[in-house]
């Protein structure tokens, strides 16, 4: 029969030679290979102590941003919720009262803002949809937990620390991803 492809590899089924039959030489060769690996540099990253550097396009947990004066940027326009393909985002808007100007940047703000992290697929479309630079994906992983309810993150879980009272926490939560937006 003619071969259908030219990738056929004919196996040679010769009887074993004497050297192959006594195994020992081949076993020695194999042991030299494993010995070489014994002294090789290990590829392991010892996770909690060492961390792999994040890719600049890494998409982790969402974070609700504040501006330089510590005011929430979100105006509860709902574009992120519309953009979300997994329908993980829920929000309720409220109007800013007089005297709350130091808390919220615009006249309208999100009184309730929830992301279901079990539904979220971390596609980053919310970040792209946001006109106010209020939501973006950070460099944090989804942590483990015991209940489904605890994966519905509300505003207190999502809000970034205040840059005025806790500048270190703010910088840490912002991570390296947000830097390019500051330019």
């Amino acid at each position: 029969m003619e071969a259908l492809t030219n990738r056929v590899k004919v196996m040679e089924r010769k009887p074993m030679t004497f050297v192959e039959k006594i195994y020992l030489w081949n076993i020695m060769k194999g042991m030299m290979i494993t010995l070489k690996h014994f002294f090789k540099k290990k590829a392991t990253i010892k996770y909690p102590e060492q961390k792999r550097p994040f890719s600049p396009v890494w998409r982790g947990l969402q974070i609700l941003n504040r501006d330089e004066e510590g005011r929430e940027r979100c105006t509860a326009c709902g574009l992120c919720a519309v953009a979300c393909p997994a329908e993980a985002i829920t929000m309720e808007a409220a109007e800013r009262e007089p005297g709350e100007e130091n808390l919220y940047r615009e006249e309208k703000y999100a009184a309730k803002y929830e992301i279901n992290m079990l539904r979220c697929i971390f596609c980053g479309l919310c970040e792209e949809a946001c006109p106010k630079d209020a939501i973006y994906l950070s460099e944090t992983f989804t942590p483990s937990n015991y209940t489904r309810e605890s994966f519905i993150y509300n505003k207190s879980d999502l809000l970034i620390p205040d840059p005025k009272t806790d500048p270190q926490g703010f910088a840490k939560a912002r991570g390296n991803r947000a830097k390019k937006e500051e330019v």
Partner: peptide, 13 residues
């Protein structure tokens, strides 16, 4: 440990 080192891992640490 030996198994890990031969397989390019670190082993129990």
């Amino acid at each position: 440990k030996v198994a890990a080192f031969i397989q390019d891992r670190i082993g129990p640490n």
